[in-house]
Amino acid sequence: MKSSAQTSFAERLGQMLGRMWRGYVRQERKANGWLVEHGIPAVGATALLWIIKLVVLGVLLYVAFWLALLLVFAVAAAWAVQHGALDSDSEDALIVQDELSKLRQTPGYDPNLYNDTSHEMYKDD
């Protein structure tokens, strides 16, 4: 058996978080006392501290929402790039080729009017 007990990382982390929490509570009590000393009723001081906590929580949730939304858009853009959804050059070429083939089938089609250089009846003047 070991002569000295070693604390794990989780235990040290818990102790550190406990000390931080106790320090926060101590500072909150000091702030509450300071507010009472300056003429604010004890109930009002407590309510004011709660309002400040709720405002801070609201701001944090607001920032977290926008960061999460930004992350969702970044993941969606990465997925689209990876799967070739944003590769519009080949799609545009297919659309133009499809429209050109439909246009060529119309009666009275003149390749010179549409500058269709790939057509066999095109004449360069």
Rank of each mutant, 00 (worst) to 15 (best):
M1W: 12
A5L: 10
Q6G: 01
S8R: 09
S8N: 07
F9Q: 09
F9V: 07
A10L: 13
A10H: 07
E11S: 13
R12V: 05
L13A: 13
L13N: 02
G14A: 15
Q15T: 04
L17T: 04
L17K: 12
G18S: 14
R19Y: 07
M20G: 00
W21S: 07
W21N: 03
R22G: 01
G23D: 09
G23I: 01
Y24N: 02
Y24D: 02
E28R: 13
N32V: 01
G33S: 03
G33P: 00
E37C: 01
A42V: 09
A45L: 08
L48Y: 12
L48S: 05
L48I: 05
I52Q: 14
I52R: 15
K53F: 15
K53N: 09
K53T: 06
V55G: 02
V56C: 08
G58I: 07
L61I: 05
V63I: 12
V63W: 05
A64T: 01
F65C: 03
F65P: 00
W66K: 04
W66A: 01
W66N: 09
W66G: 01
L67S: 04
L67R: 06
A68H: 05
L69H: 04
L69Q: 08
L71A: 14
L71S: 12
V72D: 08
A74N: 11
V75W: 11
A76V: 09
A78L: 14
A78I: 03
A78V: 06
W79T: 03
H83G: 01
H83P: 00
H83K: 13
G84N: 03
A85T: 01
L86G: 08
S88E: 11
S88F: 13
S88P: 00
D89R: 15
D89C: 05
D92M: 11
D92G: 02
D92T: 09
A93D: 08
A93N: 09
I95G: 00
I95A: 14
L100M: 15
S101W: 07
K102Q: 15
R104W: 10
Q105G: 04
Q105P: 01
T106C: 06
T106I: 12
G108Y: 06
D110I: 05
D110S: 04
N112Q: 09
D116T: 03
S118G: 12
H119V: 02
M121V: 02
Y122W: 15
Y122R: 08
K123H: 12
D124Q: 14
